[in-house]
């Protein structure tokens, strides 16, 4: 199932947030959205997830979601959004219960996603007992449990320290390699974008427009830190972003 955004524009009141955005999200690819703060990345993700409607334009779903997908468009939140009163298992079963999946069938799915995110030993832990990185892995496990066609990730690693972020990026690459998933990945961090993205969409400052789309052909597994090819892409992205970021920063003063 592909996602296609067709000239999406959006206003909050009289503020123009997004202008004429068209992006294709092909099946099995990770599309990274980067752009200065406040340019409307989260808003765009909410449109794709159906949590909000754009003022103009449309978000299309091309083709049917794969057989057995319980929640085709699934979020991974920056602040994890785990229910603190439910254990790791409970947080995952939460999203299965509403689809009538209980008992042995639910158990099988839970065991599977916990194994894939290396959390099997923490099944009964409460969120307060977990580190930030583990919490985000639980959130990823929860997302995997509903067999999403497209994962919508809004700065999923921003709340974590640099080392944990590296480890989780490796985990994401491993997950993707085992079973390619489609994802829209919003981030501020260009290193994350060149590590995980097959396609990086650079947005301009508000009102957000597509400034440039950069394709990265190196397979995910072969991307290493210090790869000159990737460094070059990252530099290019940074040059694109720098002026926007600076301008955006100065604009806030005039608001």
């Amino acid at each position: 199932m592909d996602i296609q955004m067709k000239s999406v524009s959006h206003f909050y009141g009289s503020t123009e947030v997004l202008r004429d955005i068209s992006i294709d999200i092909p099946t099995g690819k990770v599309v990274c959205l980067v752009g200065p703060s406040g340019c409307g990345k989260s808003t765009l993700l909410r449109f794709i997830g159906g949590l909000e409607r754009p003022t103009q334009g449309e978000v299309l779903q091309l083709g049917e979601p794969p057989e057995g997908s319980l929640n085709p468009l699934t979020y991974v939140f920056q602040d994890f959004a785990l229910l603190p009163w439910r254990s790791v298992r409970g947080n995952i079963s939460l999203v299965l219960e509403d689809h009538g999946i209980r008992g042995e069938k639910a158990n099988r799915i839970i065991q599977d996603v916990l194994a894939r995110t290396k959390l099997s030993d923490f099944e009964n832990a409460l969120p307060k007992q977990l580190s930030g990185g583990m919490k985000q892995r639980v959130a990823i496990a929860r997302a995997l449990a509903v067999k999403p066609a497209v994962m919508l990730m809004d700065e999923p690693l921003s709340a974590l320290d640099a080392q944990t972020r590296e480890l989780l990026m490796d985990d994401l690459v491993a997950l993707w390699t085992r079973q390619p998933f489609t994802a829209v990945y919003v981030t501020h961090n260009l290193a994350e974008a060149v590590r995980l993205g097959h396609k990086v969409v650079v947005l301009s400052r508000r009102p957000g427009r597509v400034r440039e789309v950069v394709e990265i052909d190196t397979p995910l597994t072969e991307r290493t830190t210090g790869d000159p090819e990737l460094e070059k892409v990252q530099n290019k992205l940074w040059n694109l972003m720098r002026d926007e970021a600076r301008a955006a920063d100065e604009e806030l003063v005039n608001v």
């Binding site: 997830g49 949590l51 319980l70 929640n71 468009l73 699934t74 979020y75 939140f77 602040d79 959004a81 229910l83 009163w85 939460l94 999203v95 219960e97 509403d98 689809h99 929860r142 509903v146 919508l152």
Partner: peptide, 25 residues
Amino acid sequence: RTLIRMGQSFGLSWWSIVRKIVLPG
């Protein structure tokens, strides 16, 4: 509210959100 948005984004029914997220919260 982010927990409620989470519930909605996973397609939980209104009643499930009230029972499993709002009430315990």
